[in-house]
Write a protein that binds this DNA or RNA. Structure first.
Lengths: 120, 120
DNA sequence: CGAAACCTCAACCATACGGTTGAATATGCT
DNA sequence: AGCATATTCAACCGTATGGTTGAGGTTTCG
């Protein structure tokens, strides 16, 4: 439903990717999402708007809290688009480790955890 | 090596995604890449620059032609990042068909082929 | 050599992006 | 009712983005 444009655009920001990884653990209220960031609440609210319009999360108001929930379907759309290129073999969890290795060994660009951590 | 920022940013533009799908078929010279677009050559050249800096393609000059070649490793990085979310099951080619179905049934946003076509 | 083909560079423009601050709007608590 | 909490809205600002046009540098070919 949401276009690839908005999905990829949403994923192109490290703050938003980090928000997604936070939501991977559990649903969160907006203020709690904003807590670890050194940025105004309004800025985070905007980021959440971008993620919502991309369909990557949903926001449901319950009481005075607005709960943010990961919506993996949009991510899946984008993932499937990339898989459609078919140039590389199916999901390879080793590849994720490889990726992390390269991400951390080369002091490339960002600093913090903009990557999910499904490795237990 | 290229950060997720630049990869996802590069993927967020329909022109650039379409270029990638074109390069899926074969390597191409810049002018030929630009041909189907209603846009100046300089604009396409810029798009190719974005794709190159993201590591999604490489450009090699041979004679007076500059050949553009798909570089799937960067795509794989991004794909792996998404797979890291692990919320959805491994590569599911049916999902790609589902995606196309939804993409074409709902007159959502874009019009043309910004998706690869690995279905023979 | 000179002209044409191929591509990038530079300057410019309108619009979008990511952030800020301050006011506005719910909702819940006492 | 009244106040604190939670979230968004609105206006603003600097910078980036995606496009244009025109000039410039290589390479090939007649």
């Amino acid at each position: 439903m949401p276009a690839l444009d908005s999905i990829f655009h949403a994923l192109a920001d490290p703050t938003r990717r980090r928000i997604l990884t936070m939501l991977l653990e559990d649903d969160m209220a907006v203020t709690d999402v904003a807590d670890p960031f050194e940025m105004s609440l309004a800025a985070i609210s905007k980021h959440l708007g971008v993620l919502t319009r991309a369909g990557l999360i949903s926001q449901e108001r319950r009481g005075r809290l607005t709960w943010c929930k990961l919506e993996p379907q949009a991510l899946k759309d984008a993932s499937v688009w990339m898989q459609g290129f078919g140039q590389f073999e199916p999901v390879d969890l080793d590849a994720f480790e490889d990726f992390l290795k390269r991400e951390f060994s080369e002091p490339d660009s960002e600093e913090d955890v903009t990557t999910p951590s499904p490795l237990p």
